Simulated scan of single mutants.
Amino acid sequence: MYISELVIKNFKGYKGTHNFKFKKGVNYLSGSNNVGKSSILDAIECVFGNKKFNISEFRNTATQPSEEVSIEVKITSDSYMPDVIDKIIENNANSTKIKNHILRTYTKTHIRLKITSESINTGKKSSKPGEVLIYSEKSNAFENVTGIDAPLKKLLDVLRINANQSADSEI
């Protein structure tokens, strides 16, 4: 299981919509200072990190307060992901809700998550800005499913090692 895609909109130094694709295995971010490498990691931490973030605080300074700030993450597995999800969240009552939001193709399975500065109303339940939403193929929209935050955060453990840190001590 890996992050296969990250879409950020008006987030930190990125004005407009920017799409990043990742491959299975190790992916490296490299570049000059102040090009946005840390912003990509910050976006992933907003979705999977253990800290609570106010996504509007990350608004690109060149955007209007009325413009949406959002982060979308696609998690992909080449294996049968429900087995993986069962093992990770087997003791959580919301595992069935998550399983109902898995997108399946012939060779892969995906989960799409989104955090936005906007309130989303999908008919069943509206969301507050900054809540983790999960994509439903059935409704073709991101939905606010009560209680999914904790089990979804277990799907990916974010380990961030900056250039001035010792990788050995962090691992």
Rank of each mutant, 00 (worst) to 15 (best):
M1A: 13
M1F: 08
Y2N: 13
I3Y: 08
E5R: 15
E5T: 13
E5Q: 15
N10T: 08
F11S: 03
F11T: 01
F11L: 07
K12W: 02
G13W: 04
Y14K: 07
Y14N: 02
K15S: 14
K15F: 10
K15Y: 09
G16Y: 09
G16K: 11
H18E: 08
N19R: 14
K21N: 14
F22D: 05
K23L: 13
N27A: 09
N27F: 11
Y28H: 01
Y28T: 15
S30E: 12
G31H: 12
S32P: 06
S32K: 12
S32Y: 11
S32E: 13
N34M: 05
V35N: 00
V35A: 07
G36K: 02
S38T: 15
S38G: 12
S39Y: 10
L41W: 05
D42L: 09
A43W: 04
A43T: 08
A43N: 08
A43D: 02
I44K: 10
I44S: 04
E45I: 04
E45W: 02
C46I: 15
C46G: 02
V47H: 02
N50W: 08
K51G: 00
K52D: 10
N54D: 13
I55N: 00
E57M: 12
F58K: 03
R59N: 04
R59G: 06
N60F: 04
N60L: 06
T61N: 14
T63E: 10
T63Y: 01
T63Q: 07
Q64V: 06
Q64P: 00
E67Y: 06
S70W: 01
K74E: 13
K74Y: 09
I75L: 14
T76L: 08
Y80L: 11
Y80H: 11
M81D: 02
P82V: 04
D83A: 11
D83E: 06
D83H: 11
I85S: 03
D86P: 00
K87V: 01
K87A: 07
I88M: 03
I88C: 00
I88E: 09
I89E: 00
E90V: 08
N91M: 07
A93E: 15
N94P: 01
S95V: 14
K97V: 11
K99T: 03
K99A: 10
N100E: 14
L103V: 01
L103W: 01
R104P: 01
T105R: 05
T105F: 09
Y106F: 06
K108G: 00
T109D: 11
I111Y: 02
R112M: 14
I115N: 00
S117E: 04
S117R: 06
E118L: 09
E118R: 13
S119N: 11
I120N: 07
I120H: 06
K124A: 02
K125T: 06
S127G: 03
P129F: 07
P129E: 07
G130F: 03
S136Y: 03
S136I: 05
K138F: 00
A141E: 11
F142R: 06
G147Y: 04
G147W: 08
D149W: 04
A150N: 08
P151K: 05
L152N: 01
L152Y: 02
L155E: 01
D157T: 13
V158Q: 01
L159W: 12
R160V: 10
R160E: 12
I161R: 05
I161N: 10
N162T: 13
N162S: 14
N164M: 11
Q165L: 14
S166D: 13
S166N: 15
A167Y: 12
A167Q: 10
A167W: 12
